[in-house]
Write a protein that binds this DNA or RNA. Structure first.
Lengths: 173, 173
DNA sequence: CACCGTTGGTTCAGTGAATGAACCGGGGTA
DNA sequence: TACCCCGGTTCATTCACTGAACCAACGGTG
C-alpha cells in the first residue's frame, strides 16, 4: 500500500500509522506475532501468504520498529521475529478490528480472550470486565467455534495460551 | 486490497474486517465520515484521493453497511454518506490506530479529543479518564499542533466540534 | 561421498489495483 | 447563452501482489 507512495499531504496520525501497517497482510502478520508466531515458515503456514510478500512485510515491520529480528540459533543461523513494545501496543488495534469483524461481518469467532488472572472475558475493548485495563501478556486466548484451520501452527495455537508466548510446534510425526 | 482477492482460508475475524476495511484509503474515509465529512467533494478535498478510488470506496462501504448513502436534496439530486451504527463502532479502531501512529511514528498530533461532558482528555483507549466509556457523539475534537491542512473542509473542522456532527462549509468568499 | 530435508529466503513473469488527467451530464446562476 | 458545481465514469500508465521456480547453508542418512 505504501512503498514509496504515501498518503501525500495528510497531517493525520492515522495516515502515518497506515503507512506502516496499511498494506495487505501487514496487520495479520502483527496479529500472529502477538499470538506468539515467531518464525518465517510458521507465519507462512498459518497465513498462506506468498513468501515474497511475507519477506517484505517482516522487513518493513522490523525496519519500522514493530518487530525485532534476531537469530535464535547459529549454525545454521535461524531467525525469529518478536514484537517490540510498539508492536505489543498494536494489540488494542488488532483486537478492536477483530471484534468489529465478528460483530458486523459475522461468522463464528475463531478465538476468545479472557483475563488470565480472574477468568473474566474481555470487553469489546481490551479491558477486563472485572479488573479494567489488561496487558496482553495477561490475556489468555482459547479456541472459539469458528476455529477451522488445521495446519500445524494453528493446531499448536488451539490450546489455551497466553498472548506473546512463543508458539512451540510438536515434533513432526 | 480485496476486490475478489480475499485472504483465502483465513478463519479470523480480523481478516474478515480487513476484507471490508483494509484497502488503501478506506479507513481514512471512515475516519473522516466519523469526523463529520458527508459529501463526495468534501472527502475529495480533504483527502486528495483520486475520484475513481473515492467512488469505489464509498460504494463498497455503503454496500458493506458501514456508510449509508442518501440524497440530502433533490433537483439537482445530491448525496451524502453517513456512518451507520457499524460505522460508528469503528471509532475505537480509528482512534487506537491514530494514537499508535502518534506515539510510535511521531510528529505532532493534528487533533485532540476530550469528553465533552466533563472536559477530560481521552485515554489511549476511547474511554474518558474520569467517566469511563464514552460514545463518539459525546467526544469533542479540537485542533492540535500538528494540524497543517488549509483546504476549506479542514478549516471548517478546525473549530472545536463533536464527532458525527456534519461539517458545514462557510459560503465561499 | 551423494543425496535429501529444513529454513529462510530471492527472482521473475503475469495479473490486478491505484493514479491522475480528461471527460460527462444534470441543474443552477449571471 | 455561457459558465460553474456536484458527483461521478473512462482510460492509459504505473505500481504492487501472486505464485511458481530457484537458491544456499547446514544437518542428517545410507
Amino acid at each position: 500500500m505504501a512503498l514509496g507512495k504515501d498518503y501525500p499531504g495528510q497531517d493525520c496520525s492515522l495516515s502515518r500509522a497506515l503507512e506502516m501497517l496499511g498494506e495487505r497482510w501487514t496487520l495479520l502478520v502483527v496479529q500472529n506475532a502477538i499470538y506468539g508466531v515467531r518464525r518465517f515458515s510458521d507465519f507462512q503456514v498459518r497465513l498462506d501468504i506468498p513468501k515474497a510478500v511475507l519477506s517484505d512485510r517482516l522487513a518493513r515491520l522490523t525496519e519500522g520498529g514493530v518487530l525485532e529480528k534476531r537469530a535464535y540459533q547459529a549454525s545454521p543461523v535461524r531467525y525469529e521475529y518478536v514484537p517490540t513494545d510498539a508492536g505489543v501496543e498494536l494489540w488494542p488495534v488488532v483486537y478492536a478490528l477483530g471484534v468489529w469483524g465478528y460483530r458486523h461481518i459475522g461468522g463464528e469467532p475463531p478465538r476468545l480472550f479472557r483475563h488470565a488472572e480472574c477468568g473474566a472475558a474481555l470487553l469489546p475493548s481490551t479491558d477486563c470486565s472485572a479488573c479494567g485495563p489488561v496487558h496482553p501478556r495477561d490475556v489468555e486466548m482459547y479456541p472459539g467455534p469458528g476455529a477451522k484451520r488445521t495446519d500445524r501452527v494453528s493446531q499448536a495455537m488451539n490450546r489455551p495460551r497466553r498472548l506473546l508466548v512463543p508458539v512451540e510446534l510438536e515434533p513432526q510425526a
